[in-house]
Nucleic acid binder design. Structure first.
Length: 298
DNA sequence: CACTAAACCTGGGAGC
DNA sequence: TGCTCCCAGGTTTAGT
């Protein structure tokens, strides 16, 4: 689910709640979410019991982000790698609190944590951190140290983060200019630009005035410049608004981001374009639903 | 190498 | 009310 602005907003919102806290105990209800399921991912801790035991007594010293992954650093040097995939949530709650998860009008009894989707629970010296995940695509992997994480190959195919200084126009120009796949494919590919997903790929294309299904190599330098500027504009603004809460995404305190109200095309097929009034079109690019304005985007 | 489809899962909404 | 079908913010893997 969450893209760069959502993961970054979650990171920032978690920070004051969990840094400096010690982990009293960990309960893993779904062992699958902390174990290996692929060839690239090779968490060093496979068993649920080991995962729980290894974390007990550790203190959380920091939380960082690489692409759409969160890294929770521990005083032992160990690193927890969290990927939320489509529906993962990290929510902090203190005793007596009652989070309105996702802001949906749901029964009071259902807002209590843990709920049936709280698959991993970290009991801290003050408060509790819940990992909730409806679809269970996400995971939390424990590595003995940062070096082993980077050596594992997990981040080998990772591109440049839009927030990084090294994300320059020249970089984007070269990446797009030399490829012949569709523009949206390139924006979605984490090995080129990290952090964009289906929402922001469409939003960025609209703001740049470029059709998402254009062949990348057909873009002019001027168009790539527009695209670069759109990425540089949209991402920080989305973060400042806490990201886009479309369905399940919430921050550490259970609150929703408000950037969805700024969306120009995502989720708006069939509605009039805010710029020209023509009806926004829907198509499939890269197996993903894609919304665009056939008049404002060339 | 480039692209597509399927797979991992559950749940909400639309339509009948 | 209930059933079926479609769709969903991500990413990997298998197949063409």
């Amino acid at each position: 689910m969450p893209e760069l602005p959502e993961v970054e907003s979650l990171r920032r919102s978690l920070k004051p709640y969990i840094i400096g806290k010690s982990i009293q105990s960990v309960i893993v209800h779904k062992p699958k979410l902390v174990s290996s399921s692929g060839t690239v991912r090779q968490p060093l801790i496979e068993k649920k019991e080991e995962f729980e035991k290894e974390l007990k007594g550790r203190t959380i010293t920091g939380i960082t982000r690489i692409a759409k992954n969160l890294l929770i650093h521990l005083d032992s040097g160990q690193v927890l790698l969290v990927h939320l995939k489509m529906t993962g949530q990290l929510v902090y709650q203190e005793k007596g609190e009652n989070k309105a998860l996702g802001g949906h009008p749901i029964e009071l009894s259902e807002t209590k944590l843990p709920n049936q989707h709280s698959h991993i629970i970290f009991e801290l010296n003050k408060g509790t951190l819940f990992y909730n995940d409806i679809r269970m695509f996400g995971y939390i992997l424990l590595y003995p140290n940062e070096q082993s994480l980077h050596k594992s190959g997990y981040f080998d195919a990772i591109g440049i983060d839009p927030l990084d200084d090294t994300f320059t126009f020249e970089y984007l120009y070269k990446q797009i200019n030399t490829r012949k796949s569709k523009l949206k494919s390139i924006l979605l590919s984490q090995s080129i630009v990290t952090g964009l997903g289906n929402i922001y790929a469409d939003e960025v294309c609209f703001r740049a005035g470029i059709l998402p299904n254009r062949l990348a190599s057909s873009l002019t330098k001027k168009e790539i410049r527009k695209l670069y500027n759109a990425i540089q504009d949209v991402i920080p603004i989305a973060i400042s608004m806490g990201g886009s809460s479309v369905a399940n995404y919430i921050m550490a305190d259970g609150s929703r981001g408000t950037y969805a109200r700024e969306h120009k095309v995502y989720g708006k097929a069939g509605k009039p374009c805010q710029l020209c009034g023509h009806i926004l079109q829907k198509t499939i690019v890269n197996t993903r639903t894609t919304v665009f304005c056939q008049f404002c985007q060339k």
